[in-house]
Design a protein around this nucleic acid. Sequence first.
DNA 1: ATGAAAGCGCTAACAG
DNA 2: CTGTTAGCGCTTTCAT
Lengths: 340, 340
Amino acid sequence: MNERQGKAVRMADVAKAVGVSTMTVSRAFRGDAGINVATRAAILTKAEELGYVFDATAASLRQNRSGFVAVTVPSINNANFAETVRQLSRGLSRDGLQILLANTEYDPDEEERLIGELLRRKPEAIVLTVGGYTQKTRQMLQATRIPVIEMWGLPAKPIQHVIGFSNPDSMSRMVDHLVGLGHRDIAFVGGDSARDPRGGERRQGFTAAMRRHGLDDGKLVTAGPAPVGMAEGAEALDRLLTDYPGVQAVIGVSDLVAFGLLSECQRRGIDVPGRLTIAGFGNYEIGRICVPRLTTLDVHAGRIGTMAASLIARILRDDAGNQPTWIEIPADLIVRESSG
Amino acid sequence: MNERQGKAVRMADVAKAVGVSTMTVSRAFRGDAGINVATRAAILTKAEELGYVFDATAASLRQNRSGFVAVTVPSINNANFAETVRQLSRGLSRDGLQILLANTEYDPDEEERLIGELLRRKPEAIVLTVGGYTQKTRQMLQATRIPVIEMWGLPAKPIQHVIGFSNPDSMSRMVDHLVGLGHRDIAFVGGDSARDPRGGERRQGFTAAMRRHGLDDGKLVTAGPAPVGMAEGAEALDRLLTDYPGVQAVIGVSDLVAFGLLSECQRRGIDVPGRLTIAGFGNYEIGRICVPRLTTLDVHAGRIGTMAASLIARILRDDAGNQPTWIEIPADLIVRESSG
DNA sequence: ATGAAAGCGCTAACAG
DNA sequence: CTGTTAGCGCTTTCAT
């Protein structure tokens, strides 16, 4: 019956079936104004009947518009990165843009490889979690003609646009809070910072603030290679108490680590915050639910995504967005029961 | 200088600069065997120098191979779905396949819209979280020529391939465990099941098993519209204790809900499992860390992704994968301290 | 309101 | 080992 046996239905097939040109079918599908209402209806009906599926690849090639925005995150398993991606995705979908997501797994070489692959798809913009690029990565990002947005931090040498918060400054504020409560003997639990630039910046913020207060900035516990989570936090408590027996307060590089520390305290009957004050970072849902609730810093993960989407929409609309945008979304200190 | 001012570098530009045909450049980039090593090196060097970026869109169109696999999940913010996607992504990357991810937000109409958009990108396979499709969605999935894989459940009317576990059967086993411990007065806390077919199936598994044991199957608490998480679990405890004062054990539709219930118990000084036994579903990391640790069902979220990737690779390699595959990955009961 | 011709950047198919 | 020709399915451009 069909002369293109086994082949997918194209616009030309729909056009022939309806008795119009492919151009008219194209116009019907794009909702062009200048097209007869009846013709349009007939085309859409026939297309449905034939099982026609529009080929976005061909359209992309011809229009030089892929409709993609590339995004890289260190780990999609992290609830906060996931929330950023979710809001980014929501915001972009209003402009008909789809996300091309890549997980770097906290590995700069993997990130380089993934960004290379993403760029071959001709995305209209690329959104990155800031920090720790390889030389080749930086070179690719500087050479590309599309908008580049770094998020989740404030890079010293921004590539183009930036949306985020200062990791060290935010952490400094947490130290100020704990010192304000009267604590002097404060420790920091984080991962191997080489694999997690943001975590490393938080640790730097911790040591800088401790020094500023004239306190010992050396109470650091390394919970393992990034990403460190609940399990690593729980395991780290032992080392914390052994290495720094007089510790009064501890800050986790994230709420997940803080929750691990908290759980292990509970298990051992250590009163929080009576015997040990615990604070986290990131304002994850778990910190609002656990007992006691966690003092933390809200980095507004969702808002970062929302604002990145708006920024991209604006840049793609008017080409006026030629000069780099710098959007700082300050983290908010949230004081809860775990610090006292 | 350049005659294509403002335009991106193409293969033809590289070819001209090196003094070969575009075909040779194409071969160099694809790592074809039959090409002079020196020529290949010269091409790659020149390409780098000119800032050439391979256009995967054009290659896709010509080869009729997009290199995409489409995936839909109800929520990427859920750690278990994220883990499935992560492993799926890892497995597929070995075959040079990229994931095109869409979040349905537990909304069948949104799912329909997203699947429509995904199919226009000509993915080579599509992976769905099973259940609750609109009529149009089912029709699209039945009409498509690409492999369709439903995961995270065992559908009554599979479209093609299936990889997952039985939600009702798994939940039944949890009931058996609690009854085996001597509990008779058991409740279930979940979300509005209309929005979450998998949650609804778990509830059905609960009621069926309770009836099988000759016990009251009516102790249900609805924690709100799906997705229900930690916060909804915490809020639901009050209703649970008010509506069913004699309740001995409670099952959360997920570990997140169970953790919410557990936290609220801790807050009120209710002993778990002494006064109330709590069980969850899904084996989330939190259940291994919290105090007491949660009894749960391991659904092997990561393995679902890994196996989906292998299945896709196999189907795309030999076309022999014409008959539907049915892979059941039984959930494992994990007994921990929260049930006693 | 509709159509004809050209071409987006790459590669299949064939030739040498 | 390398080149030539044609064309993937759509849209731009220009014409009517």
